[in-house]
């Protein structure tokens, strides 16, 4: 067992982990932050995406020990300081970008990373970027619209083209 210490959503977390413990397990089990989900075991679905030192990472694909000393942001750390939904989260609610909600944390974390590197992505750029995030409920229609809207674009007009 190894001690790891990392900062999650601004709070220091220390845990004793096995070498095989994944970052997502540390977040869910030790930090009790269950917003990050596990939807597969082959790093395909993206439900577990978090930000590690500002980069979008599939937390099922990283060992907990690799995150020692890292700054991690999860879905629980994405709302505004006053607890209200961020622009991106609000766009998902406004445009019905989620149904069962299971893939949603990963979608939001990936979308946030996309908008950081590309503040006004086209619909196609959004679809390409989300290649590693699977949603079974929405057909992606309203997820793409949500991200377009969060970037200040006219999602309804673009979707109707």
């Amino acid at each position: 067992m190894t001690d790891v210490t990392l900062t999650v959503n601004g709070t220091q977390v220390t845990a004793q982990v096995e070498g095989r413990t994944l970052l997502v397990d540390l977040l869910r089990e030790d930090a009790r932050l269950t917003g990050t989900h596990v939807g597969c075991d082959t790093s395909q679905c993206g439900a577990c995406v978090v930000h590690v030192n500002g980069e979008a990472v599939k937390s099922c694909t990283m060992f907990a020990v690799e995150a020692d000393g890292a700054e991690v942001t999860t879905i629980e750390g994405m709302a505004n300081a006053d607890g209200s939904l961020s622009t991106l989260q609000q766009a998902f609610q406004d445009h019905h970008g989620l149904q069962c909600g299971f893939c949603t944390p990963g979608m939001v974390m990936s979308a946030a990373a996309l908008l950081k590197e590309n503040p006004k992505p086209s619909a196609q750029e959004i679809r390409d970027y989300l290649e590693g995030n699977i949603c079974r409920c929405t057909g992606y229609h309203n997820i793409v619209k949500s991200i377009l809207a969060a970037s200040g674009q006219d999602a309804g007009a673009i979707a109707a083209e």
């Binding site: 869910r28 932050l33 269950t34 917003g35 990050t36 989900h37 596990v38 999860t74 879905i75 629980e76 994405m78 709302a79 939904l85 989260q89 998902f92 609610q93 406004d94 019905h96 989620l98 909600g101 299971f102 949603t104 944390p105 939001v108």
Partner: peptide, 19 residues
């Protein structure tokens, strides 16, 4: 009407069985 359940799902505080 906007979905009231979205808020918990968007902030990571849903209550799925594995949680």
């Amino acid at each position: 009407s906007k979905r009231r359940e979205d808020v918990r799902f968007l902030t990571g505080v849903g209550n799925y069985t594995d949680d």
